[in-house]
Design a protein around this nucleic acid. Structure first.
Lengths: 347, 347
DNA sequence: GTTAGCACTCGCAGCGATAGAGTGCTAACA
DNA sequence: TGTTAGCACTCTATCGCTGCGAGTGCTAAC
């Protein structure tokens, strides 16, 4: 790793140029635009860099292209995180908060903003809710044989489902059931609630029990599952059409088919580590992503809810810029939601 | 329009062949595969058909391609709606009902199934809810300064929002407000509720009024708007990559950019008429759709909720087959939901 | 009215020639 | 010893040319 100063500068120049133009970079170009010596000198240095594995050659008589190793070095040491300008920050904030009332909404917007700024395909996962706790459960009569099962979580999320009953239920019965449920489940995390054997925890008369078991419990489980569900938002899919690496129709097709498998994508993303994480080309375990880079970051809401967002694009991407934006966005989501939740926490 | 029998048959043959192969159809092909005369005869007839505007010529020495006028004739008179086989119907039903509990879910699935069967891009709009009526409104205390505003509509849809209050509210106050709201709004359609001047209809003490006006009314309006919102589901976007007409990267790009503008698409779709509707190429008012055909159909739930689904694809599409599938699907959605709703209507 | 035959048109794949970008190597220079 | 100018060489991309094949339109015969 003991590259000379000049080699580092040349490498950086090649990477910068290639990221900008997507064309192999020749020695003359570097020589002209940077004060690093004559084309011949640059050539010699480039030749060394190639031997060291930082550059490659599409064919003998073409310029140099950075290897994954080069990008890795760039990301770790050379790249400067470009701090966003105030204007950019303002623009992001404006876009992000316009017309947003719910977290899901904010997340969706974040994916949108991210794709707009980076000109890449962006995604965002709504928070994982394993740690969210049930706070309050209620059963509300709508008509004699319909009740609404309402669950409120500590995060503020509310779920409700209309439940059909086999026989009419008295308000009393409902009240008892709801009380019982709240007593047994409030304070439990959603996943705990889901794995608790529901029936055993109950005390009520036979009729109420039967109703609970046959009508309410299934809906309760379904609601919990729904609340636990993580949503994936994607945006900027068509941005790849502007990238020369996807000019080939088959490449474009593969990309779309990849990102269309939402289940796969969600799994891949959620298995990634925390913080800002950059994986380049073959560093992605996934064969299909071997010529893409993926940048993800984690946002936290109230130190409990955790979600991810990021971009996917060709290995040639503006790592510095994208990283800054992704960081800024995750910070802002955390802030925005601590704020909303905070309004109430002081009571 | 007084085409001879043979001309009609030839036209039909050309259309069928072109729909299958996407290649201009030559006279020899027709002559070999159908008993309609020698190549020379067919050529003469084709020449006539061209003069009448039913066929065109990409260039002098290539086969014939059907014009939009030809497709229109085909759709109106020549095409046989291919009744689905029992297997196909079963497969659809299986796909459609697997794991479906809510209407939204069913609609989303319908779009999926439709795209799978037709190999085209399919979309489905969730029902318009202007005619849905409010049935029941409730305000439920969660903690001293949080209540949940719950709206239940006659269609069974339930909406709720957590509302933060400026000051704690007593259960009594909430009960009075909820009663008042139910009294004033139940039986009103969602749009009526939205246009009713909310404050005027109220009678309550000053404090309750203030709380209603500042905290609850805005959430109420938002909830109504949410409930009125129509969702667009699309599926099978990548199917166009299998179509030769989208082998050109620019064509593909345009298509994706078109269907990505969801707002536009929704507007275009909802402004279309009822029943099964086929628009071919230039018949679409929209410039961008001028080389596409669009087939939509309307589904009804309980004779009240109305939504649309359909496909979009090149003018060369299997009109007969697609029409049948679209019809079968809309019928089944109507049935499926009359069923679910029906369970309760007998009470 | 139908059909065989034939000249003609046009798109397309394959081929070679050419230009241009860029390298690697050698030799000279500081 | 490191740097640089010069030059031969390599490889790609582009253009024009050619020949092939598919298909037409027309004419004349049936």
């Amino acid at each position: 790793m003991d590259l000379t100063e000049r080699k580092l500068k040349i490498l950086q120049a090649v990477i910068a140029d290639f990221i900008r133009t997507a064309e192999p970079v020749g020695s003359r170009t570097i020589s002209k635009n940077y004060e690093l010596g004559s084309p011949a000198t640059i050539r010699n240095e480039m030749s060394d860099l190639e031997e060291l594995g930082y550059l490659t050659h599409p064919h003998t008589s073409s310029g140099r292209v950075p290897s994954e190793k080069a990008y890795r070095l760039y990301v770790n040491e050379l790249m400067k995180k470009r701090e966003l300008t105030q204007e950019q920050k303002d623009a992001i904030a404006r876009d992000l908060y316009s017309n947003v009332t719910e977290l899901e909404n904010l997340i969706e917007r974040a994916a949108h903003v991210l794709s707009e700024i980076t000109n890449l395909t962006a995604f965002a996962l709504s928070p994982e809710k394993e740690q969210d706790k049930l706070k309050y459960i209620n059963l509300l009569p709508v008509d004699p044989k319909t009740v609404v099962l309402m669950l409120v979580a500590e995060s503020g999320e509310v779920s409700n489902t209309a439940v059909r009953l086999d026989k009419p239920a008295s308000e009393d019965t409902l009240r008892i059931l709801a009380k019982n449920m709240t007593y047994n489940y409030s304070g439990k995390t959603l996943s705990e609630a889901l794995t608790t054997d529901i029936i055993k925890t109950f005390k009520a008369d036979a009729e109420a029990m039967a109703m609970f078991e046959h009508n309410i419990a299934p809906s309760f489980i379904k609601s919990l599952e729904d609340m636990l569900n993580v949503n994936l938002y994607m945006d900027g899919l068509t941005n790849i059409f502007s990238l020369p690496e996807y000019n080939d129709i088959d490449k474009a097709r593969n990309f779309f088919e990849l990102v269309n498998r939402k289940q796969d994508i969600m799994q891949k993303l959620s298995s990634r580590g925390d913080g800002v994480l950059i994986t380049i080309g073959g560093e992605n375990e996934d064969e299909e992503l071997s010529d893409c880079s993926v940048i993800t970051a984690t946002y936290h809401v109230d130190g409990k809810l955790v979600g991810k967002l990021g971009v996917i694009g060709p290995t040639r991407m503006k790592y510095g810029e994208v990283t800054s934006v992704v960081e800024y966005l995750t910070d802002n989501i955390s802030k925005a939601f601590r704020l909303t939740e905070g309004e109430g926490d002081d009571s």
